[in-house]
Structure formats: C-alpha cells, structure tokens
C-alpha cells in the first residue's frame, strides 16, 4: 500500500509540475482584461502539488498497512483489462461490432468456460442487436470495418 501511495502521489506531483510549467508559460498573473489563462490552472496545480507532498509525507511516516493488490487479485483484474484493451485496439481495424463479437466470444469461452452454443449465440446476437439498436433505431454511428462496408453500410 505504501509503495502504491508513494507512486500515485509522485505521479500527481509530476503532473502538477507539468501544469505549473504550462501555466507559467501562458501567464498566470493579471492581464489587460483580467486574470490570464494560466491563472486558474496555476493555483490548482500549486495547491495540488503541496497537497500531494503532504500525502507523500503521511504515507512515508505511516505504517505499512494492507497490501495494495495481491497476486491472486491482480490475475482476474488483468484478465478483464487486457482482452478489453485488445478489443479496443481491434476496433480500429474491424469496427466495433466485429471486435465486440470476437471479444464477447473469447471472454465467454476463456473465462466463463461456457459451451460453444451459447458462446456463438451471444457473441453473434449481442453485436447484431446493438447494431440494430444504435445504427438503425437510435441512428448513432459506431466505428465500422470491412465487414460492414461489404454489407453496404
């Protein structure tokens, strides 16, 4: 927990520093017609850096506390995270519907160990249903790939 606190506070201080740098660059004082653009971010970032420094000191002085994440906990989290990331990356190439069909099918089969029939029915049914709902009914376009192009959308 201490290490995680430490890293998070440090990253936030770093980000605060970046904001301060940008605020100083565009000016944080009083311009010809009121506070300059950097005024608000400057003070926000300054207070944040000071705050995070105190949190950093608190975590350094405090006890070790409970573990941030155990190996057993991290496993399932990554099992959700990496297929989701892969699915989003896939959307760039094959569109949202095909990517979500592959993602749902893979996840159901790999994590849920469902048998093939429900896997195929749901992995195909849900993207088709969402296609009808969003493209047809709500008229909200989603990223599309070669398959949709081939079908004429």
């Amino acid at each position: 927990m201490r290490a995680a606190e430490f890293v998070t506070a440090s990253i936030l201080i770093l980000l605060g520093g970046v904001v301060l740098f940008d605020a100083v660059r565009i000016g944080f004082g009083w311009g010809p017609d009121g506070p300059r653009s950097g005024f608000f971010p400057f003070w926000l970032a300054l207070i944040m850096v000071v705050n995070c420094a105190v949190i950093l000191a608190q975590s350094a002085l405090g006890g070790r506390g409970k573990i941030f994440v155990s190996r057993e906990q991290l496993g399932p989290v990554l099992k959700v995270l990496w297929p989701a990331t892969a699915a989003v990356a896939l959307m760039h190439f094959v569109g949202l519907y095909v990517a979500s069909a592959l993602y749902m099918g893979f996840y159901m089969r790999w994590v849920g160990r469902h048998s093939w029939v429900p896997v195929i029915v749901i992995a195909l049914g849900l993207p088709i249903a969402s296609f009808l709902i969003f493209e047809k009914w709500f008229l909200v376009p989603m990223p599309k790939g070669p398959l949709e192009q081939w079908l004429g959308y």
Partner: peptide, 25 residues
C-alpha cells in the same frame, strides 16, 4: 446473467457510450 457475459457486455456498452459522445475512437 453469468459474470462472463456481463463483464464483456458492460465493457462493450461503455465503449459504445464513450464513442457516441464525440464519434471518437
């Protein structure tokens, strides 16, 4: 609904919701 269906379903719905705001990947 089993967990292994709901998790990817929610991720997909979240992705659709995010994309619909500005049509941006």
């Amino acid at each position: 609904i089993p967990f292994a269906i709901l998790t990817p379903l929610i991720v997909v719905v979240c992705a659709i919701g995010s994309y619909a705001v500005h049509n941006s990947m």
